[in-house]
């Protein structure tokens, strides 16, 4: 009988503890609150003049976003150019646009971005030494179009557009590509797939591929690679500009983490993670790319 009483007491104590847990149990993992962050955006392209840099602030999710209202004004912006080995070459000073608040243009429009070089963007408050934002990019090595298999093709015909390129270079990793297609004659109409999903007539003028690893393509014996344009990259009939870009690590990190935030294939719905921002002092992308552009004409297939 003593054993039974002991057990009952034990059970009562256990049940009491259990009820205490229920009533007092709270989730210590609580939602934190919004904190404003500074945002930098710039995209350098090898062989082209320096692109503008946009500085903004983040806004609370529940508020309307306006580039003008979010603009970060009166900043001192400069980009430091370094060679492949990181040796300083020169500084490119930027100044804010009078028309577009928060948009900063290089003072010298003749400077050209060099492939394989490193560029470091720095943002300070005017008259202040403290560095607010900084980010660095390594520009992918420039590459060239060697040849194509033609310039005019029938949509979903037996032959697809193929272009052969020299290879780009990026230190420490394989090249990552994005293919961008821009319709130059959108008035000729969309291809059936895009036509069925478009909500506005001017949608899909420019479409881009996801990130494609260089290892997806076979290396030709002469060291070049040949890319075949999938039909899904063609949104309109007529002439399209086909641009193949090698991208830097900053854009690679941005785009791959954005893909996860938009609902990556293995992430539970509703689980959102911050993006990979390679920016000190804030967020944003100071990225770079090297690209080659060609044109191709896509004809509507003959009606049987």
């Amino acid at each position: 009988m003593k054993t039974i009483a002991l057990c009952r007491n034990t059970l009562a104590l256990t049940l009491f503890s259990f009820i205490f847990l229920l009533t007092s149990g709270c989730d210590p993992y609580r939602q934190d609150s919004y904190e404003e962050q500074l945002v930098i955006y710039g995209m350098l392209t090898a062989g082209e003049p320096f692109s503008p840099i946009r500085l903004t602030r983040t806004v609370p999710f529940s508020e309307a976003y306006s580039e003008e209202a979010a603009a970060l004004r009166n900043m001192h912006v400069r980009v430091i150019e370094m060679d492949e080995d990181g040796e300083f070459i020169r500084t490119i000073q930027y100044q804010e646009s009078e028309r577009d608040p928060g948009v900063y243009f290089p003072r010298s429009r003749s400077s050209i971005v060099q492939g394989r070089f490193r560029y470091r963007a720095e943002v300070r408050q005017v008259e202040a030494a403290e560095l607010l934002l900084s980010a660095q990019t390594i520009v992918p090595g420039s590459f060239e179009l060697v040849e194509t298999n033609g310039s005019t093709f029938i949509y979903q015909g037996p032959e697809q557009y193929e272009a052969t390129y020299t290879t780009s270079f990026y230190p420490g990793r394989q090249n990552y590509f994005i293919i961008s297609t821009r319709a130059l004659n959108p008035e000729l109409g969309m291809t059936p797939f895009y036509d069925s999903i478009a909500e506005e007539p001017d949608e899909f003028i420019t479409v881009s591929s996801p990130i494609i690893n260089e290892q997806n393509y076979e290396l030709n014996p002469d060291g070049t690679i040949t890319l075949r344009l999938p039909w899904i990259s063609v949104s309109h009939f007529g002439i399209s500009a086909i641009s193949v870009f090698a991208i830097d690590t900053n854009w690679y990190d941005y785009q791959r983490s954005l893909g996860v935030q938009l609902g990556g294939s293995t992430v539970s719905p509703g689980q959102i993670e911050n993006l990979l921002w390679n920016v000190e002092g804030g967020i944003g992308v100071f990225g770079s790319r090297a690209g080659v552009r060609s044109e191709v004409t896509i004809l509507s297939p003959p009606i049987p």
């Binding site: 609150s33 904190e35 955006y41 420019t206 911050n274 944003g284």
Partner: peptide, 20 residues
């Protein structure tokens, strides 16, 4: 919690990254 906009240079759309 927050948001920003990044102009995607590859498709001319505005991306809307969320800040969480």
């Amino acid at each position: 919690l927050g948001r920003t906009q990044i102009r995607n240079p590859f498709n001319d759309d505005n991306d809307n990254p969320l800040i969480v």
